[in-house]
Amino acid sequence: MITVTPVLALIIFVAGAIAGSLGALLGLGGGIFLVPFLNLGLSFPITVAAAISLTTVIATSSSVSAGRAGKQLINMRLGMLLEVATAAGSLLGGVTAQLLAQTTLQKLFGVTSAIVAVIMLSRLQRRNVILDPSVDPGILGGRFHEDESGGTVTYRVKRLPVALVASFIAGNVSSLLGIGGGFIKVPVLNAWCGVPMRAAAATSAFMIGVTATAGAVIYYGRGQLVPALAAAGVLGVQLGSWAGLRFGQRASAKWLKLMMAIVLFVIAVMMLVRGSRS
């Protein structure tokens, strides 16, 4: 098993801080950067990397949403409804991760990242924002104040079945690979379901705590979670996401999407190369 040294803890703390700040900036949760680093960079088994990452995902989700709860950016109802699907997917993913080979998981990570990056780029110009504040958002829709434009953004949720299927897949991939799953949910909610980028990111960040917990419990029960390393990761990610969030509020939605797509491509290539080498 992995020997926990102060240097290793420090490396994971710093990596967590960087991953956390990028994650907060993109509404991803940080896991998507931390897992490749721990798996490819530090050669941890992908299950051990996933277990550490899932705990940081829970911490990020909880702290980010604690500050935002009560504000209208998080769509609580939509989040709760989609959590039924993400938690089910997550349970399945946590069990499946125990049965699959590491190279299979790496290839899966690569392929999924690449697909979503393509979706992000093809939808770069869409905004999906109904600017008329008198629009009825319905039971699942939402309304929030946008600081950039100074206006009120109102939206209805379209194609709910698509959102549910995407959430199930996101939950599944989340536990399987130790990431938040926001990188699937956010583009789908934004591109197909009429949810503005900001609200999609905030709602996803709110949901991933519950999603990650359903899977993390399985890794924990299997003894794949190293508490000291999880602690280093969690504390680093907390620091990073706090910093990233301050900066992220000033970044534009289009810039966020573009950066998200580039990062996904890089991760896809790295994971596919490693997964094919075996």
């Binding site: 069990v95 419990v217 029960g221």
Partner: peptide
Amino acid sequence: ELLAGAVAA
């Protein structure tokens, strides 16, 4: 579902 995760573990 969350409790089922604990049971599965």
